[in-house]
């Protein structure tokens, strides 16, 4: 009747995000994510709207309220004081990232326009493991990897393992490199 299907299923949990916050803390802070979401939403509304008629402002407030009320747990499944720090550090990370991205793109342009492209490229799949834990950190690193030199994140595991497709050897060798340190630094996970 009951057969255990131990097929190759990953042991991660899609429903529960892995906050380090316990249940009790969540209840205590449940108002803060809502407020922050609300403010963020309203700011977005103002940028989008560009119209400060009272009617539209009030509509904006209502809309922000609706979104924040129903979906604040999406934006901030768990909120800790660290978020502000993360935000600041992240802002500092972006310019570096952009420069990296531009570098990566010139590299790629060179490859693409090279007449003997197939001799230059040498696709690899490489695995490496990091000690990143939070989803945000994992995602940031993954997207950064995708955007920067010749590498695309294929999969990530929740334990911080990465599988990356690299277009050529130099790109592959550069991994995980400084980027990991920077990302870990942002999220305070560089143990």
């Amino acid at each position: 009747m009951t057969d255990a299907n131990t097929g190759a299923r990953s042991p991660e949990n899609p429903l529960k995000t892995k906050g380090k916050v316990s249940l009790g803390q969540e209840e205590k802070q449940s108002f803060a994510p809502f407020m922050i979401t609300f403010v963020l939403m309203f700011a977005t509304w103002l940028i989008l709207s560009g119209n400060f008629a009272p009617l539209l402002i009030s509509l904006g407030l209502i809309s922000s309220l609706i979104v924040a009320w129903f979906f604040h747990d999406l934006l901030f499944p768990s909120l800790t004081g660290k978020h502000l720090g993360i935000f600041i550090k992240f802002s500092a990370y972006i310019p570096w990232l952009i420069i990296e991205i531009i570098k990566a793109n010139f590299h790629l342009l060179y490859l693409v326009f090279h007449p003997r492209m197939k001799e230059l490229i040498d696709p690899h799949i490489i695995d490496f493991k990091t000690n990143l834990e939070s989803d945000l950190a994992v995602t940031t690193l993954a997207n950064s990897i995708t955007l920067t030199p010749g590498t695309i994140t294929v999969t990530t595991g929740s334990d911080g393992s990465y599988r990356v497709h690299a277009i050529d050897k130099p790109s592959a060798e550069a991994l995980p490199g400084t980027m990991l340190d920077k990302v870990a630094d942002i999220y305070g996970e560089n143990k």
Binding site: L108, I121, P123, H165
Partner: peptide, 24 residues
Amino acid sequence: GGAIGIIRMPDFYSRLHPAGKLDT
């Protein structure tokens, strides 16, 4: 570069590099 890369690259994975990065 992205467009040419998409056409020239030999396989699916390497095509994603120009498509993903250059277009962005």
